[in-house]
């Protein structure tokens, strides 16, 4: 791929990136539009941000979404850690294939399938054992944990299998019982993967519309559900402002994570003997 093809491929890639970013840029720019008509530029203004701050419905939904996302991300990391340990450290056991399949299947399952099947499960469970009582933030959280576990398992498993068994063996050899070796050696080394997994599940939960629509109840509209019902009615400058806030927050988080990863991977040169 030298000379002749290079500029072509480069141009192609540039086009791809432009395609990915153009809508977001437009969204951000027009969130500062004075005019109510989203497509006509009427001068710079931050008034939509002010209105957003006064929109109780969106703020409440956002707060609920953040809480659900935090809880389900934590749950997904805990279960994902256990699952990764089972898959990497337990060797072969009967039912391992089923276990693996169950954990990873949500990765390639369309949202509508997960949403509807959980809705029917919750309704069926309620009619059988009376739990869960109706649909609420709880059922949304359960659904998001189920999806999140697939992602956290993949991420934590990759890190864990990278660590190898030697470190565990060394800890045991030096007198640490398994739980203590795990806490003092494995856990600190898994920390980056745990954090990354947590962040990913958090954003997935925060972003999810389809699954949440199926399993949320009347009082538990999450932010995407509220945004969706408003977007369905047409374009709104307030949503542009909200979108801008979310894009900025996410960009900051990614930047911080990137910087901290860079910091931790920086190594001094190999010392001479």
């Amino acid at each position: 791929m030298r000379s002749r093809w290079r500029p072509l491929i480069g141009g192609y890639a540039l086009f791809g990136y432009a395609f990915l970013y153009m809508p977001i840029v437009i969204l951000v720019v027009y969130s500062f539009n004075e005019s109510r008509l989203v497509t006509v530029w009427g001068g710079f203004s931050t008034k939509w941000y002010g209105e957003l701050l006064g929109n109780e419905r969106i703020l409440q939904a956002a707060w609920l979404s953040v809480r659900i996302a935090a809880v389900s991300a934590t749950g997904a990391v805990l279960l994902g850690t256990a699952a990764a340990i089972v898959l990497v450290r337990f060797g072969r056991f009967r039912g391992r294939g089923v276990f693996n399949g169950l954990l990873l299947a949500p990765l390639v399952m369309p949202d509508v399938i997960i949403g509807l099947s959980l809705l029917l499960l919750f309704v069926w469970l309620q009619s059988q054992i009376g739990w869960p009582a109706g649909r609420s933030g709880l059922t949304v959280g359960i659904a998001h944990i189920t999806v999140g576990v697939a992602y956290t398992t993949v991420m934590i498993r990759a890190r864990l299998s990278q660590l190898g068994r030697d470190l565990d063996d060394a800890a045991a050899d030096l007198g640490a019982p398994p739980w203590r070796g795990f806490v003092e050696v494995t856990l600190p080394l898994l920390a980056p993967a745990l954090a990354a997994g947590w962040l990913l599940s958090f954003t997935l939960s925060l972003d999810d519309l389809v699954v949440a629509s199926f399993v949320s109840g009347p009082g538990s509209s999450t932010l995407p559900i509220v945004v969706f019902s408003s977007v369905r009615l047409g374009v709104s400058p307030q949503i542009n402002a909200l979108a801008t806030v979310m894009v900025v927050v996410v960009a900051l988080i990614v930047l911080l994570v990137g910087l901290s990863m860079r910091q931790s991977s920086r190594r001094p040169p190999e010392g001479a003997d």
């Binding site: 977001i24 969204l27 027009y30 925060l206 972003d207 995407p224 945004v227 977007v231 979310m246 894009v247």
Partner: peptide
């Protein structure tokens, strides 16, 4: 960033 919002951006 939000899938919903990215799709919405195209409407504009």
């Amino acid at each position: 960033t939000s899938f919903l919002i990215r799709t919405y951006a195209w409407i504009t």
